[in-house]
């Protein structure tokens, strides 16, 4: 049967159209509603700029922490079988599943004076409640699974035999990682970083528990909406979306496999 006459193809096209419209229509509506004047005015607002910058910096820091600490764990999960591996994988996925205000409450509960970790953090001068440190902690918490799972998929795509051959040729485990594994997996790691950062930028529920102030962009949008209404929150949202779009497009382009797209 020709594809054009296959009812399944038409069903797929119809459902795809509904899905794409469901995602795009509200976003396009929101993006097109603010006037140029209100967008310009919002761009001049120092509080808005500060909150978007803070969102980017804290989310970037969360992605960086995920990269440094998550890479060894992703590699371990991709390459080794060990008792309790499934449990560990489920633990890593927990931040995706649990309600995000709960994440904030959980983090605060270990940061207080009643908890040994809280006392240690205080001794080290680390404050969680209402600080940038708290923001980064909470964003790392929610973003980690996205980085680890993507990096792990990247490592799994590399045949272990490449690493075995590298070792047999004289490279140590570390040398093999940096000369074989990393050059083949870095695109997945960058994509994982982007996903982690994207997740962190959009976080709201956990952030308002741990650090309403200093105000990140989602909190500012919420505050403007509750205090002044839709009209005043939309321009901030538009700028946040635009900044994220440009940033993520850039990172995607850097990580794009030229050979694969050729």
């Amino acid at each position: 049967m020709q594809p054009g006459r296959d009812p399944l193809v038409w069903l797929a096209v119809a459902s795809s159209t509904v899905i794409v419209a469901f995602i795009l229509v509200p976003l396009v509506e929101m993006m097109t509603q603010p006037t140029m004047a209100s967008l310009k005015e919002t761009l001049m607002d120092r509080d808005v700029i500060r909150s978007i910058r803070l969102s980017m910096v804290t989310s970037g820091a969360a992605a960086l922490i995920a990269l440094v600490f998550g890479t060894p764990l992703a590699y371990l999960l991709a390459r080794h079988r060990f008792p309790g591996k499934k449990i560990l994988e489920s633990i890593i996925d927990l931040p995706i599943m649990i309600p995000h205000p709960v994440v904030g409450i959980a983090l605060l509960s270990i940061a207080g004076r009643n908890h040994p970790l809280g006392r240690l953090m205080q001794a080290l001068g680390l404050e969680i409640m209402g600080t940038v440190t708290g923001l980064i902690a909470v964003l790392t918490f929610v973003g980690l699974p996205f980085y680890i799972n993507t990096a792990k998929a990247g490592f799994e795509e590399i045949p272990p035999r490449l690493e075995h051959v590298s070792r047999s040729l004289g490279a140590s485990a570390g040398g093999t990682f940096f000369r074989v594994t990393l050059p083949l997996a870095w695109r997945h790691m960058v994509v994982g970083g982007i996903m982690c950062m994207a997740r962190a930028v959009s976080e709201f529920g956990a952030v308002i528990i741990v650090a309403y102030h200093p105000m990140v962009a989602p909190v500012m949008i919420y505050e403007r909406f509750t205090a002044y209404g839709l009209k005043y929150s939309q321009p901030v949202a538009v700028w946040l979306i635009l900044v994220c779009l440009v940033l993520f497009l850039l990172m995607r382009m850097i990580s794009l496999d030229r050979k694969a797209t050729a």
Partner: peptide, 27 residues
């Protein structure tokens, strides 16, 4: 493995895809 002095050639060759022929040989 790196201290054993043993070379290995697999059925699928396991060549490093990110390196050209010369760099593979010199690895």
């Amino acid at each position: 493995p790196e201290w054993r002095g043993v070379g290995i050639v697999y059925q699928d060759c396991a060549l490093f895809p990110h390196l050209n022929v010369e760099k593979n040989i010199h690895y």
